[in-house]
Nucleic acid binder design. Structure first.
Lengths: 222, 222
DNA sequence: TATCCCAATTTGGTATCCCAATCAAGCGCC
DNA sequence: GGCGCTTGATTGGGATACCAAATTGGGATA
């Protein structure tokens, strides 16, 4: 594995887990020292992270992308048509073995799972469903949208009741795809996306000052 | 403007105009010589182009992304839900001045316009409509999809009748958005996308060998 | 205390070099 | 003629040095 890939993976993970705070300044020479590598792979990694929207240029500085709470609504608007299309295509194109793999994924991560696992499932499930559509563009676009939502979702403290509900909704969507019931699957995924949107908006509505106290740069939803 | 940006812009343009053939190998040192700049900005530019899907790694080489005719269908599947959502939101959120700007764009590029201008309008119109939605994710996703389709569309030799039809369809979509007739606008954009898909598939069906004679690497749709 | 100026430091952009892995061409053998 | 091996060339990954522009902090002055 190249140095660039190591740095990229590490930084990506820290950004998504909020270990690197939104708005935090990064410098090539700082990272060079931190990773004990030269600037060349650091820069290549930063360029790739920039391409993923995880870091930006602010003047001549690199900064971790701020948290944009305003994106919660925009992402739901984006996901709704894409994911309903994805499940409709999935009903037509799904392969039994892939369905079983997703079912295994769900069984391996019940609502009582550790927080990080639970969080990861929330993304992986949706991307796996999109893959069933057989459309790489839809899959990629959705994966990118879920990455954008990753940090915001991490800030939400989900209780057991909402986890149960989410898990059951995931399970129901998968079942409907297995039964090739496209209309019901579309309705189920749409409801799930809207539920996610509303839950996030409610949960984060009053916590903005708390996040800022962590040094997070928050924009949007003012 | 930095050297990296100059190289990036130049290469991007040549790839999209098929001046750099799909599948063509690029080397850092070759580009260094060609642009009379050091490898550092060349490498940065290549990384950015990679992020846009315009170049790939093949083993240790950089190559211009092949032409994937199989994407014609996938892109239409992707655009359909996105653009219908975009026009529906546009009906609600559009601003008069933006509508007029798009109308001016259409007037400035009639079906008799030079090929390059006509080609550019085909992309810019759709991105401008998506912008009316006020959803940056949808706009960006669509812009990227149009870039993917750019080279394929360039290969099509459009006749005057099909240009007239396309121009009228664009005009009709804009008018429906202006009138806030969401249902009709969605139907019109859907029909337009499907028409584009069918037209491209038909036009390119028998021309694959001709393109390969140009040294283009063609994949998909076999 | 506030403001301004200056020098030092920082930072990204670029150039150049070194290294290891891969590839291509040529040669020899069957 | 074909195949395998060797050697030299090519290529990207990484390291380091230089440069110019921007930023920061400290000192002086009002």
């Amino acid at each position: 594995m190249s140095q660039m890939t190591q740095i990229f993976d590490r930084l990506r993970e820290e950004i998504l887990s909020l270990g690197l705070a939104p708005g935090e300044k990064l410098t090539e020479r700082g990272l060079e020292t931190r990773f004990t590598m030269s600037r060349t792979p650091v820069r290549a990694a930063l360029l790739r992270l920039e391409g993923e929207g995880l870091v930006h240029r602010a003047g001549r500085n690199w900064v971790v992308a701020p948290l944009d709470l305003g994106e919660i609504v925009a992402i739901a608007e984006f996901r709704l048509p894409l994911e309903t299309t994805a499940v409709r295509l999935a009903c037509a194109r799904r392969v039994e073995a892939d369905l079983n793999a997703i079912a295994d994924m769900l069984e391996a991560c019940r609502p009582t799972a550790p927080r990080e696992e639970w969080h990861r499932l929330g993304t992986e499930f949706h991307v796996a469903i999109a893959k069933l559509s057989g459309n790489a563009l839809i899959t990629k676009a959705l994966a990118e949208a879920m990455v954008r939502l990753h940090r915001v979702r991490w800030l939400e403290v989900s209780d057991e009741a909402s986890r149960e509900r989410a898990w059951n909704e995931h399970h129901e969507i998968l079942t409907l795809i297995r039964k090739r019931d496209a209309a019901a699957a579309e309705a189920a995924i749409a409801a799930h996306i809207n539920e996610t949107r509303n839950r996030l908006l409610a949960a984060l509505q009053d916590d903005r000052e708390r996040f800022r106290a962590h040094g997070f740069k928050i924009i949007g939803a003012d």
